[in-house]
Computed example of a mutant assay.
Amino acid sequence: MNRRSVLAALAASGVLTTLTACGGADEPAATASSTSPTSTGGAFPVTITHKFGSTTIESAPSRVVTVGYNEEDFVLALGVTPVGSRTPLGDFDSAKRPWAVDLLPAGGIPSVGQSELNFEQIAALRPDLVIGAYAYLQQTDYDKLSAIAPTVGDLVPAGQPAGSDAAATWQEELAAIGKALGKEAEAGSLTAEVEGKFTAAVAANPSFTGKTVSVVLYNQGYYALDAADPRGNFFLQLGFTANPLSGSVSEEQLVQLDTDVLVVLGLGKAEFAQNAVAARLGAVTENRTVYVPTFASDFAGALGFSSPLSLPFALEQAVPALAAATDGNPSTVPADL
């Protein structure tokens, strides 16, 4: 699914975050920010290839600004506190996200924008690296950021053509950010650790493997999320097979959501069943549907971040509900997430 085709819906729902200008006199000054040393022996210079070309980082960065949808988590996971980061949009309170709360500074991380980037605030923070690996940057944004500091733009997934809007996997994002920070070894170890949690969940739940899953997001219309979106890909990492339906879903296409398992983001059962077609789906009537009624829930936030910090949390939340949806017993009702 084209990432930009549903950007407005995802951002408005709060599943993603977007960039807004929110600088001002009350913003924390650059000197009020702090960061951990980023180098643990990584070799520099390093070059990161991305949608806008490539960026060479000459030495270990010490002041990192993140401008994307989930990069703050990736940097925190590698032991670095950004000196500035984008402010999430939507109902989810990311400042209290349980998987990262212990890593966030007491005063928070200074904001560099929300729906639009505040380039003056970014410059005032004196970054020596800007990370926008999953940021939907425009060329003009990238050019302005690059004039401030070396900038890693949106990553292009392996096998995709240059300029593709498909999202990189969390593994690709973690590898690139680890390289940029001089923490490749840590990134590799963390990747293996998180992948091991998925492997254990699949082994413990053989009923997942081979089952077809539909992941649909509702925000003034239905959007089917596939493997090119991190939220859709989460369920495929658990052994499920993707529904080929992707993108905006019309009323006539709702019947195509009737797969072995259905995941509905943004609606509870009562709301979803107000649609007569949705109410008749076998996945609904036989309790094979997992509902995420609000984007303010911790699970919705974890799925939205799709980071090495949030994914283990999302697994703990999702696996019991998915097990109930795949146990073959219509009387078992999966818990809402």
Rank of each mutant, 00 (worst) to 15 (best):
M1T: 12
N2L: 13
C22R: 07
G23F: 08
P28G: 04
A29Q: 09
A29V: 08
S33H: 12
G41E: 09
T49C: 12
H50S: 04
K51G: 15
K51F: 11
T55R: 04
I57T: 13
I57L: 11
A60T: 03
P61W: 04
G68V: 15
D73E: 13
A77K: 00
G79N: 02
T81Q: 10
S85M: 10
L89Y: 14
D91G: 10
K96I: 08
W99K: 08
L103V: 03
G108W: 03
L117F: 10
N118W: 11
D128F: 08
D128P: 15
V130Y: 06
Q139V: 12
Y142G: 11
A147C: 11
G153E: 13
P157Q: 00
A166M: 09
A167K: 03
G178C: 01
A185N: 08
E186V: 03
G188T: 14
L190R: 06
K197E: 15
T199V: 15
A203F: 03
A203E: 14
A204Y: 02
P206C: 10
S207Y: 03
S207D: 12
G221V: 09
Y223M: 07
A224R: 09
G232K: 05
N233R: 15
P244R: 11
P244L: 10
E252V: 11
V255S: 00
Q256A: 13
G268Q: 08
G268R: 03
A283F: 00
T285V: 13
T285M: 04
T289C: 05
V290W: 03
A300Q: 06
P308S: 14
P320A: 05
A321D: 05
A324F: 01
A324N: 13
D327R: 02
D336T: 05
